[in-house]
Design a binder for these strands. Structure first.
Lengths: 343, 343
DNA sequence: CTGAAAGCGCTTACAG
DNA sequence: CTGAAAGCGCTTACAG
């Protein structure tokens, strides 16, 4: 790695001032096309790119977005989300700076801000009443969250981008109804995290709309997000006097537990009992029969997040609710909107 | 976000020169303890941290390590690897800069280097004769690779850190032998990527050592890394005149396919036929019975990678081969080294 | 051990 | 449209 060329070198080679070289990059409209061409030639020949540190120092902008990589189990779509986030950032000439933080410890955020190492943060895996949101909001630090935080009371701090879980589950139920199901169970978690409540609301609303039963017996809850707990929950549903013919689970793992319990009883998912999951993780596609699930539009989420961060001003209370996409597989061959309109 | 304090502010408040403030951070041994205390008090009071851009500009070091997030399916351990990488980087006061790149397109790397936005790169998911390694080596750009690239001919470009797949599979086979197995099959992939060959070598060597059969009929290959292909491969093995009683798969997904085929035949993994996977992905722990697999020591890998990058000099041809850890579950209850020594 | 000074490479009003 | 000049905040030989 030999020392890189600087504006000075480019200017000398192109026979212009350093200011002009800078203009080529930062105010191209202000420079004569012929001069532009000369400079660009020199830039190419030298492989010149403005030094980031110098640029950042002057413009007071790191052009970096901080993202704290979750330590725990890590949402299954983290890798695809990260990829999308990078892409979105690069589209507006930013990059993503990764860091770690102890649970509830904001000192890493604080340091990054004090060092001016990042311009803003992207959050994910929001929990109810998320302390990170409060902390950042109080200090007027720029951020955007993938996922709402559901506060015990008061307003949801913005900006956030989220998937409409209620709508997605509503669509799932409607799809199941179109397949002839009249009794649909719901498998949730015990811990009342907002996203779960949201999905449960969707199930209730849709069942009510279709005049299907949606009372307590049809709602079962798992303690942990494991196959074993999903299986136990499914067992309770199947042991009802009048068991449901379809089960909507709040996660793919839970749904897989359901499939397991069905297999144990000699029942086939998608034939005897319909099953759906959520998040369209690898699990959903790798298993047989494939699991119908809800895919989060990660690319659009990432774009919306980044957009809310780079718009020089204003948009500090963006609230974007995107629709999840139903990925229909054999466990519940729901007609997709496209397929439906074709038919 | 009000304007942050600078060395100037700290110096004024502590009643010292700016040089001294800088020394507190960069050459603490050179400053009188009493002065130190004064400065530190001012630093705390102001929440001062040296501006990264200014520091980088001066020291000519971005203190950032670039990592290109893979676009394709993404190794299942990417999220845990990223977390470990961040941790390791932060331990030596670095951060990870994430970016994307089109397949085989090195322009993103080139730009980052030209901008001096990163000091080095970490690579992962090395393929045979990896063009990235060649590209970086030719330009003398600092990097370290998680995973060897297996060149068609010539030396393996260093530095790399990898898990000894041959040894891990060797251990697995030995464990299976200790469980009484005398006929052990191997499920690989068709595409001869180096890591697979490596594991196959381990199987061959171990079988030979234990005087077990290790001829071609016991080796079957999947076209893709899917459950369906794993299942098909298992079928071929089970249909042999003298079928194996244990099957060593080169991935968890393939192993799960084996389990499926067994279930289809009314056989129970771990009871009737032993099954092992590789990588200890979520699949291995979520399934029932749990899948015995090989866990890569991600933390140690990340540490070794980062260490090879920050050592101011020298270590440009680090080659670190770490041992994978066998995670024993019901599909093949292999005694672990610890358990063995306890017994 | 401390201080005054130079300079890293860039951008940006400000004159011409 | 172009050029000379200042300055972003830091670090680092260099004197004292």
């Amino acid at each position: 790695m030999v020392s890189s060329p600087t504006v000075r070198d480019v200017a000398a080679r192109a026979g212009v001032s350093r200011q002009t070289v800078s203009n080529v990059f930062n105010a191209p409209d202000r420079v004569d096309p012929r001069t532009m061409a000369k400079v660009l030639t020199a830039v190419e020949a030298l492989g010149y790119r403005p030094n980031r540190s110098a640029r950042s120092l002057k413009t007071r902008s790191a052009e970096l977005i901080g993202y704290c990589v979750p330590s725990r189990p890590a949402g299954p779509l983290m890798d695809t989300f990260l990829h999308a986030l990078c892409n979105a950032a690069e589209a507006v000439n930013r990059h993503v700076l990764l860091f770690t933080a102890g649970d509830g410890d904001m000192s890493a955020y604080q340091n990054l801000v004090a060092q001016q190492a990042v311009d803003a943060f992207v959050l994910s895996d929001a929990v109810d009443d998320d302390p990170r949101h409060r902390w950042l909001t109080e200090r007027k630090i720029r951020y955007a969250s993938f996922g709402r935080t559901w506060p015990a009371h008061g307003e949801q701090p913005a900006p956030w981008v989220d998937v409409d879980g209620a709508a997605a589950i509503h669509d799932i139920v409607t799809g199941l109804v179109s397949l002839g199901h009249q009794r649909i169970g719901f498998l949730g978690w015990w811990h009342g995290i907002g996203a779960m409540q949201d999905r449960l609301r969707g199930w209730r609303a849709a069942c009510a709309e279709h005049r299907l039963p949606h009372g307590d017996p049809l709602v079962v809850r798992a303690i942990a997000d494991t196959m074993a707990d999903g299986r136990a929950a499914a067992r309770r549903l199947l042991n009802l006097a009048d068991p449901p013919t379809a089960m909507v689970a709040v996660s793919d793992v839970l749904a897989l537990g359901v499939c397991q319990e069905l297999a144990g009883r000699g029942l086939v998912p998608g034939k005897d009992v319909a099953v759906t999951g959520f998040d369209d993780t690898m699990l959903a596609s790798v298993v047989e029969p494939g699991l119908t699930s809800v895919r989060q539009p990660v690319e659009r989420i990432a774009e919306a997040l980044v957009r809310s961060l780079v718009g020089g001003d204003g948009h500090h209370d963006v609230r974007v609710l995107l629709r999840g996409e139903i990925v229909s597989r054999a466990s519940a061959p729901i007609p997709t909107p496209t397929a439906r309109s074709v038919t």
